[in-house]
Design a protein around this nucleic acid. Structure first.
Lengths: 226, 226
DNA sequence: GCAATACTGACACTGGATTGTCAGTTATAG
DNA sequence: CTATAACTGACAATCCAGTGTCAGTATTGC
């Protein structure tokens, strides 16, 4: 019944068809697209392998939850950062359904990002892979502290503790790195947000002091804490 | 010099290579991947057609900005909604660079979404396609009005004017629909945010009145304004 | 202008992807 | 238990995306 098209097209069409919520049998789909059942089975394999939520029941047919498929997106580093930030925002507020959805997207995104994406090139040694839950917990705190110019008392999972004047938050492919002036370290430090055990905003604002501000940081060595 | 791989692999590799910021000539790439220059030209066509930011200069070679490519993502409706919401949040706040980035992602996302994606099924007749710029302009206003329980004076592009008690903001595939109690209409109304000419938050809070609240709305007919 | 390099169109060839056929096995609803 | 369909493996046939070659044209920096 269908025109001869590339396989991709058919895969899309199958999902479109199943998105209606209907239960369809391989035989139905086969005749609808003018191919053999065997091809449909192969298609289903492919679709499942690509993460489509297809449920097959022997004796019944195929069902699938409605999905929206986005084509490959090409983003700049900043665009990716905006995406991550936005998802964090939604995950932090809004209603529960959206929280769950946002977190789920974050995970998909995380999984999709090649491990080496950017990240490299610069100093900032590669941190052990950490899942986003931790980042979700502290990132907002860190950002607001930077914005409001308040000191931050942080504890890393490794046990390290430090009070810092947070100056900058960078996104390195997978990991968020906060950098600033470390009071105890008496120098500039940087640390991965997702390795934070706790982060507390200390009361009172700090003022930019010569040698402890953003400009100085760019011309000074930075210690990577862990 | 390269092993024989599928074309996809080579396209990725080319981008990876160009992401270094280097300027490369078709001849270089051709010999590096062990294919003819003609193939490289075709590859460039494909890459450009897929939205890669490649700049070709005759007599010089190719340059490209660094990009991160996401594979096709399969999202539920709610996940897509979370994504949109998050981007709106970023576009509304944060620093200017991120605003721009967020808006840019929104546009890419919008462009990528099939026109018919979901949307259907429910009442709410199909609105004329509108671009996101308008939605971006008023959505934050609408959301904050809902949250702060303030009346909203809206003017639609069609000329319709109405003061509403905004109660709910829904996302229908492409369009944001705000619904609430329309003062002039003396009943519940819904309208597409991207068809708003203007939206002004009126001073003073409104209190939930029986028959004019969210619960009542779910059990009452809703007029679709345009 | 000159050199360099990007680009375009045409055409035939090749190999991996896609397919159909056949002959089975497995899981589920009722 | 039975009917129904989902699945699997193998293999030959076929198709078409990807390719190289050749012969040009179009831009750009100097």
């Amino acid at each position: 019944m269908g025109k001869s098209e590339s396989r991709r097209t058919r895969l899309q069409a199958i999902m479109h068809r199943l998105s209606g919520g209907e239960t369809l049998r391989a035989e139905d789909l086969a005749s609808e697209f003018g191919v053999s059942q065997r091809s449909i089975y192969r298609d289903m394999d492919t679709l499942k392998a690509n993460g489509m939520p297809i449920v097959a029941t022997q004796g019944q047919g195929y069902r699938a939850a409605a999905v929206i498929t986005l084509p490959p997106l090409h983003l700049s580093e900043q665009e990716l950062e905006a995406l991550h930030l936005g998802l964090l925002a939604v995950a932090a507020s809004a209603d529960e359904t959206l929280q769950v959805a946002a977190q789920s997207v974050s995970e998909k995104l995380d999984a999709a990002l090649p491990t080496d994406a950017l990240m490299s090139d610069q100093a900032l040694s590669p941190y052990p892979f950490q899942q986003s839950s931790a980042a979700l917990r502290h990132l907002a705190t860190v950002r607001s502290a930077i914005k409001s110019r308040q000191r931050l008392r942080v504890a890393l999972m490794s046990g390290t503790r430090q009070d810092i004047r947070p100056l900058k938050l960078d996104f390195w492919g997978r990991a968020w790195i906060v950098s600033g002036y470390g009071e105890q370290a008496q120098g500039f430090v940087s640390l991965p947000v997702d390795a934070l055990e706790s982060a507390t905003v200390l009361p009172g604002l700090f003022v930019a002091e010569d040698g402890k501000d953003l400009h100085a940081m760019h011309n000074a060595p930075i210690t990577s804490l862990r």
